[in-house]
């Protein structure tokens, strides 16, 4: 787990050059077939241990930006660099190992409804070939963090929307990723739950995890006090510290 240094916590612009970049975009374009431009000439830098929110209205390109960071999509032009790796240069067989450094929180949760809570959370550990002895302990720790400890045998269908979202977060953090990427994690939640989820992300960031979250929820942004990248029509309008 990365320990967060005071320098990162302060987020001082002057010291940024000295910090190690976790994610770097250089003049990135993303165009889809049919001439749709999702991102245009985007350059950005996210340092290790930062908490960044990508804000903007629907269709601004927030999800595309996250997909490019997670190596789910290819940029049409420019360079995307994650943890020192240029994604375009990465061989296909190396991709899964890069992805294991991420924790992904999906807007639609993507839970396995034929598996119980334990098996859903254990999935990334099994994929990364963690030892069988380690798995229960790590799963319980992740469930404890999201307040679902004791629900291991419950099927996801029996959970509320908020609990399903927390289950998705537990799955994203169980293998202690270096980067947590969350796409509208509070999108379908009522305001109270949204604040709880925001606090969860803040707590992960406080122990050194780089957190990048796409949201248009004003309350969440106010609660987290993050660096905000404001997107509109595929371009970064402003970056606030």
């Amino acid at each position: 787990m990365i320990e967060r240094s005071p320098a990162i916590a302060s987020n001082e612009t002057g010291s940024r050059a000295a910090l190690e970049a976790m994610i770097r975009f250089e003049n990135v374009d993303k165009r889809y077939p049919g001439g749709i431009t999702a991102l245009q000439n985007v350059s950005l830098r996210i340092d290790k241990g930062e908490l960044v929110v990508i804000a903007g209205p629907s269709g601004a390109g927030k999800s595309t930006l996250l997909n490019l960071m997670a190596a789910i999509e290819h940029p049409s032009a420019g360079r995307v660099c994650v943890n020192g790796e240029v994604l375009q240069d990465l061989r296909a067989r190396s991709l899964p190992y890069l992805r294991r450094q991420f924790g992904l929180v999906f807007q639609d949760h993507r839970l396995l409804f034929d598996r119980n809570v334990f098996d859903n959370v254990a999935l990334p550990l099994r994929i990364a070939l963690f030892s069988r002895g380690d798995i229960p302990q790590r799963v319980r720790a992740a469930l404890d963090k999201v307040g679902l400890l004791g629900r291991e045998r419950t099927m996801p269908i029996a959970l509320s929307g908020g609990e399903q979202q927390r289950l998705c977060i537990a799955r994203a953090i169980v293998h202690r990723p270096a980067i947590l990427l969350a796409d509208e994690p509070t999108g379908n939640l009522d305001p109270d739950y949204a604040v709880t989820i925001a606090d969860l992300f803040k707590s992960f960031n406080q122990v050194g995890v780089t957190v990048v979250m796409a949201t248009h929820d004003r309350a969440v942004i106010d609660r987290l006090q993050p660096r905000v990248l404001r997107l509109r029509d595929g371009q970064i309008l402003e970056q606030s510290a």
Partner: peptide, 16 residues
């Protein structure tokens, strides 16, 4: 296919 896609997203190799 949902499970397969999710597994690939979170780092499963083709072999897995």
């Amino acid at each position: 296919r949902g499970e397969i896609e999710l597994s690939r997203l979170i780092g499963a190799t083709d072999g897995y």
